[in-house]
């Protein structure tokens, strides 16, 4: 098989005595969708933070397209083609929706201070073109967002904040997009709409790979081809959702916890 698009080997991080992610191996091909599930505090978000360069690994490697990107700063990893959303959405609340998405295009645009000052036409043209594309992206993700594109992001309801974050992540033309619990804080109807939105963008960009952390089992059943289960920082199972959910170890870790929560 060809080199995987994304590959982590032995990825681990310790916070003091706590091993939050422990020797995780992941592999993702272009265009593939991978879902990560696991109980609260299992280390899923931490894994994202490792891959996107927010945390520095204690050991292990991350490769993108065969290139070692371990320990790169977050902005370089973003530029290399890994975009993400956050579990608690992190928008630029005092800027408009268009601004938010145009910022997502930062590494696909070029204007620097000198250009902005001395070549205003060129800078302006790039800026307007970016805004134009941002509008299209917003329309693709949700026509409702497009209508409100000149309002401030901070005024959006929860479900729309998630959509905007996805649009912003798509704006960088990434190779991989990582969604951290995209359905959290959404009711069933919003979740169904979200699943449709994600399907739509998948159809729109066939080469784009997804890693999705998710608690909502309907979304997990509906979208991904492959599921990885994390518990106490370790990968305990991997496979198709229909198989994985029957594994005793997963039921113990995951569903057992669900029952305890109920």
């Amino acid at each position: 098989m060809a080199v995987p698009l994304l590959e982590t080997r032995n990825l681990s991080i310790r916070f003091g005595g706590l091993v939050a992610v422990s020797r995780v191996d992941l592999s993702l091909a272009a265009g593939e969708t991978l879902c990560i599930i696991g109980p609260n505090g299992a280390g899923k978000s931490t894994l994202f933070n490792l891959i996107s360069g927010i945390y520095r690994q204690s050991s292990g490697t991350v490769r993108l397209d065969g290139r070692d990107i371990t320990g790169w700063p977050a902005h370089r990893i973003a530029a290399a083609g890994i975009a993400r959303t956050f579990q608690s959405s992190r928008l630029f609340g005092d800027l408009t929706l268009v601004d938010n998405v145009v910022i997502g295009m930062h590494c696909r645009t070029r204007t620097g201070v000198i250009d902005a000052l001395l070549r205003p036409r060129r800078a302006r043209a790039e800026f307007e073109a970016a805004a134009e594309r941002a509008g299209e992206l917003l329309r693709l993700v949700s026509p409702g967002l497009y209508e409100r594109r000149h309002t401030l992001a901070g005024t959006l309801p929860q479900a729309d904040r998630r959509r905007l974050e996805i649009a912003r992540a798509l704006a960088s033309d990434p190779k991989i997009i990582m969604l951290d619990e995209p359905s959290s804080g959404m009711d069933d109807r919003d979740t169904d709409a979200l699943i449709e939105d994600i399907r739509l963008t998948m159809a729109e960009r066939p080469g784009l790979a997804y890693i999705i952390i998710e608690h909502d089992m309907r979304l997990v059943a509906a979208l991904p081809e492959r599921v990885v289960v994390i518990d106490y920082g370790e990968k305990i199972a991997e496979g198709h959702f229909s198989e994985v959910r029957l594994m005793p170890r997963v039921q113990e870790a995951y569903l057992g916890q669900k029952a305890a929560h109920a």
């Binding site: 992190r90 630029f92 609340g93 005092d94 930062h106 204007t111 902005a116």
Partner: peptide
Amino acid sequence: SRVGLAWNALRAHELAARCQ
């Protein structure tokens, strides 16, 4: 311009700005 937007981004949310 792109520069002004980048400044605004790091004003609003530095971590999110890095991830863009």
